[in-house]
Design a protein around this nucleic acid. Structure first.
Length: 982
RNA sequence: GCCCAUGUGGCGGAAUUGGUAGACGCAGCAGACUCAAAAUCUGCCGUUCGCAAGGGCGUGAAGGUUCGAUUCCUUUCGUGGGCACCA
């Protein structure tokens, strides 16, 4: 459009256009609606058609949402991966998520139609192998191109597709379905007629929602062609075996017009050039990624600083910020899929009711005119005039039509509220059809007072009033009301449509059409002027706050910047501060954030960079993915009689319940007997003989009884390793109290399985218990000692004793249980300094490469050595303490003080590695013969190859292996090893 | 199906650049101390043949490169994770 046209658009239109370009924008979109959670979920929060949290069903629903236009950054997000230090897996996930593909869009003429069919393909080189077209069932052309013969079939298929929920589509085994439309596309290069089909395997949301199918090159197309008996054109000769498609790009094209004889991968460019030359298509890049949903219908989140005025989103002025999250009494969802904030009517609904204009300053009609109390049209105070209901008697059925004023509007409210309690049949019918924004997303209100007038239904946005003629007003009044009302409505730009009760009941469809038409005719009121949105808010129509809140990543995407300048009240972070601190050097986080948080914060950073607020466009320099700690579940195996109904009880009569006391069998016994009812019975009888608890029960059923063994989770806190702590276990649940246990070697052994840590699996570990028992330092170090940070592994506490022993051993270097203080002020000798500097070196290296498990082991070796050489020197020990501080801060700090140091160990100078303490003059060289280690020889480090050779050959063991022969070759690698080749 | 990891003792794991496989810890075994227990300490601890000395085998499997391979290459199997009617 031209500038002139732009100026002629009303504000609504201008704003709607701008919305298509905004980085954060609002649009109606199909969102993942989860009824159970009462909220919308982002794509990455939906897993296999159910909500990631809770696993509730999710359905597609059209709702107004806010989005971040992340697709606009797709390429830069992809390129940015080159310059960050992320794991390959992480990069791969982000690449997949962005899903960039290069291809071409091209138009196929449809026989007998003007409009072409536009397809997207990554393989334009296969254009001569196109045997059919497939369009998505939702494609806009489907209705128009379907031939009359195929109409029924297509309609049938469409209703089938519609009936299939997202969940079914995903859960069901892939099956080939589709339907021929009866229409044909024309291949622009050879004029072949190509049948056009619809099938659910083509998605409306990707590419153009239509594909050209090449069965010899695409397996899905191949299966489809086979299933429906569509003849297959072979354009790759022997590369296609007729059994399955071959997606190669290396074949030489045949049967392919001007492309024949070309290698497929070369033909791609040639084909696109030709397509562009013919003006029927162009190169096109597609992305799988969609824009990121940015609004949540939840409470906890930043509220949007947005006010909707007559359908236009207006941001709050800066001086109206921050908009703080208001207090709510309930966190339950609001009406119509809105969030909890929508329940706060006062907060959310800013519509001046009636607006200034609607309130007016003049009288329109005054019901009290008759009484002559005030015929000048001035304000009549209800209270002064006495109770209206009493004064006007029969007129109390005619609420409304007071003189306009805010005060009187308020007086009208109770009547409106009263009116809302009852619905006539006709009103009910209409209401069901227009409520909940069912028409064009527009909100209707019922019995909503405007000025002093209460219409049956009103759409404030479109200023449309619907009246259902109840005919209960007396005629004289009715006429006057109508006149006054009409006048008022005209002045205020309202339009009214009326229907009779009978019309509503008999011609509902027609009426709804009329309402829809009326809504569409009505232009939104132009909002005049600029200035504060608070001012503009009064301009008319519905004015509401946005009641959605922002998702977690609104904060998580950039909080690290705030950390750099947390007290700044002018901006989120001064540019000087962010320049100084620069990117996050190291981010330790899980892979579960790969396509969520980590992508969003990269986007956010790029936006801030583009706006010039920060000087870098990637937030994290290096990313380390810590592994997931899994839970180690324990199982017990309970023998239970197989009874109909209850497992544990059998009711004899109303008074007597005979209980079967459970018998638990140990893991290995369970494995032996689980399928063998006789053996189970043996165990049951054995326990019956021992304690007689089940005697009564057994006597009832004799030998016929069938048993089963139920495997169930047992809370890991009742288990020591794999051994059940029977006494404690008995206290867990009531029915366990009298249980018996079939043990092996006197112990009850539990089954073990590794699975996700979860309360329901009773395999969670509360770190508090371990911290209580061993201390935070032990816990911390044990976590590090478990293995590489990046590895996922089951949580198992069985090794924690070792770390605990290490810390106690460390303590004893300083204080002996019996002798008390043992550390001294002596000067360290060379041997001790060697131990220290070897440790400094190793700890530095290990910490640098995040190898915390080996660092812990280095500390253990160091302490073991210090114990061996009985070193208790403060000079040595405090250096070790400083090294240890990041690993075991509490004990380090405490010992640091006990050594008499002032201040915190955190402020101590970090030890500097000095290589001179580690200089060796000789080495015990490993000597291998033909690559196999046979012996070692101690040689000086400055030994020359010639000297080394001689020493090796003189060696007794080497001579034994040589058996008098001369070696073929001797390899001497200085400071490493010697290899003798025979 | 594609992509990325990964595979080493009874267990968690180590071996950083192709150079003594199994560091360190857990568990286990034997012993010391002790009335006893706890705590602590010492020794053993991949597998196999052997009284021993010493040897064979051994890093999922099969090949290859190399004086030498857990490490590099090829093929293959298993496990874990990610992606997917994406044209």
């Amino acid at each position: 459009f031209s500038a002139e046209q732009w100026r002629s658009f009303d504000i609504k239109k201008q704003q709607d256009i701008l919305m298509d370009y905004r980085l954060s924008f609002s649009a109606y979109g199909e969102v993942n609606w989860c009824e159970a959670l009462g909220t919308v979920l982002a794509n990455d929060e939906v897993v296999n058609g159910v909500s990631e949290r809770g696993g509730h069903p999710v359905e597609k629903k059209k709702m107004r949402q806010w989005y971040l236009r992340i697709t606009e950054y797709a390429d830069r997000l992809l390129e940015g991966l080159e310059k960050v230090d992320f794991s390959d897996a992480m990069k791969e996930m982000q690449k997949n998520w962005i899903g960039k593909s290069q291809g071409a869009e091209m138009d196929f003429a449809i026989k007998g139609f003007d409009k072409p069919l536009r397809v997207y393909t990554t393989r334009p080189d296969t254009i001569f192998g196109v045997d059919f077209m497939v369009v998505a069932p939702e494609h806009e052309l489907v209705a128009s191109i379907t031939s009359s013969e195929q109409k029924d079939a297509i309609e049938k298929y469409l209703s089938y597709v519609k009936s299939r929920s997202e969940r079914e589509r995903l859960a069901e085994v892939k099956q080939i379905t589709g339907c021929f439309t009866g229409a044909y596309a024309i291949n622009p290069f050879d004029g072949r007629e190509i049948p056009i089909w619809i099938a659910e395997y083509v998605l409306a949301g990707y590419g153009t929602g239509a594909i050209m199918a090449v069965p010899c090159g695409d397996q899905r197309d191949f299966l489809f062609a086979n299933h429906f008996g569509i003849p297959i054109t072979n354009i790759i000769g022997e590369h296609f075996n007729g059994e399955e498609a071959n997606p190669t790009k290396e074949a030489v094209l045949q049967n392919s017009g001007f492309l024949s004889g070309l290698l497929m991968k070369d033909a791609i460019g040639v084909a696109v050039d030709k397509i562009e030359e013919k003006g029927i298509g162009k190169r096109q890049v597609n992305y799988r990624m969609r824009d990121a949903g940015f609004s949540r219908q939840r409470y906890w989140g930043e509220p949007f600083p947005i006010i909707w005025s007559d359908g236009i989103a207006i941001p709050l002025d800066e001086d109206e910020l921050p908009l703080e999250l208001p207090h709510v009494d309930t966190y339950g969802p609001g009406p119509n899929g809105e969030g909890p904030l929508a329940n706060l009517k006062e907060w959310a609904d800013l519509t001046p009711n009636p607006s200034q204009k609607e309130r007016g300053t003049r009288d329109y009609y005054h019901i009290e005119d008759e009484a002559g109390e005030d015929n000048k049209g001035n304000y009549v105070d209800e209270n002064k005039g006495g109770d209206k209901k009493e004064n006007t008697g029969d007129k109390k059925d005619l609420p409304g039509y007071f003189k306009s004023s805010l005060q009187e509007w308020r007086n009208t409210l109770p009547f409106a509220q009263e009116n809302r309690k009852e619905l006539t049949e006709a009103e009910a019918i209409i209401w069901q059809k227009i409520r909940d924004r069912k028409i064009d997303g527009l909100k209707f209100r019922r019995q909503h007072p405007i000025a002093g007038y209460i219409p049956d239904f009103v759409c404030l946005e479109k200023r449309l009033i619907i009246e259902i003629d109840g005919g209960y007003h007396d005629e004289e009044d009715q006429k006057r009301f109508d006149e006054a009302r009409q006048k008022w409505l005209e002045e205020n730009g309202f339009k009214m449509i009326r229907f009779t009760n009978r019309e509503v009941k008999n011609n509902l469809k027609e009426i709804l059409q009329k309402i829809a038409n009326a809504l569409r005719e009505e232009k939104s009121q132009e909002i005049s002027g600029s200035g504060s949105p608070l001012f503009r808010r009064g301009a008319g129509g519905e004015v509401r706050r946005e009641t959605s809140t922002m998702p977690g990543y609104a904060g998580s995407s950039w909080y690290f910047l705030r950390y750099m300048d947390p007290n700044n009240d002018q901006t989120f972070c001064d540019r000087k501060a962010s320049d100084y601190w620069n990117q996050v050097d190291l981010y330790i986080g899980g892979t579960e954030h790969a396509v969520g948080h980590l992508l969003y914060s990269r986007l956010w950073t790029k936006v801030l960079f583009d706006l010039g607020y920060i000087g870098y466009d990637e937030p994290y320099k290096k990313l380390v993915n810590q592994g997931m700690i899994q839970g180690s579940s324990r199982f017990v195996y309970r023998i239970t009689p197989e009874l109909s109904g209850s497992d544990q009880f059998t009711i004899l009569n109303a008074d007597e319940v005979i209980e079967f006391h459970p018998i638990f069998v140990s893991f290995n016994i369970y494995n032996e007997i689980k399928e063998n009812n006789e053996k189970i019975l043996e165990i049951v009888k054995k326990h019956n003989n021992e304690n007689g608890k089940n005697r009564k029960f057994l006597s009832l059923f004799n030998e016929d009884l069938k048993f089963k063994i139920i495997e169930s989770h047992v809370d890991v806190k009742y288990v020591n390793g794999v051994e059940l702590k029977i006494d404690e276990f008995k206290t867990w649940r009531l029915e366990n109290e009298l249980a018996d246990f079939e043990r092996e070697d006197g112990k009850y052994i539990c089954g073990v399985e590794t699975e996700k840590m979860s309360k329901s699996k009773y395999n969670t570990v509360n770190p508090d218990d371990l911290v209580e028992k061993y201390g935070a330092d032990t816990f911390r170090m044990y976590e590090m000692f478990l293995g590489p940070v990046e590895a996922s592994k089951p949580w198992d506490t069985k090794g924690i004793e070792g770390v605990h022993r290490f810390l106690r051993k460390l303590w004893r270097l300083f204080y002996d249980d019996l002798k008390g203080k043992v550390w001294n002020e002596e000067t360290a000798n060379a041997v001790e300094l060697k131990v220290l500097h070897r440790t400094i070196k190793k700890i530095e290296e290990d910490t640098e490469r995040f190898s915390f498990n080996t660092a812990v082991s280095t500390f253990m070796i160091c302490v073991n050595e210090l114990v061996d050489i009985k070193c208790h020197k403060k000079e040595m020990l405090q250096q070790v303490l400083i090294l240890l501080t990041p690993y075991a801060p509490h004990i380090a700090e405490e010992l640091w003080h006990l050594l008499g140091n002032e201040g915190s160990v955190l402020d101590a100078t970090y030890p500097v590695y000095d290589a001179k303490y580690l200089i060796e003059t000789a080495k015990e060289y490993p000597v291998s013969i033909n690559g196999k280690l046979r012996t070692t020889i101690n040689m000086s480090l400055d030994t020359t190859p010639e000297q080394a050779e001689k020493m090796v050959l003189d060696n007794e063991i080497v001579q034994k292996w040589l058996e008098g022969k001369a070696p073929k070759k001797i390899i001497y690698v200085k400071n490493k090893m010697v290899n003798v080749v025979i």
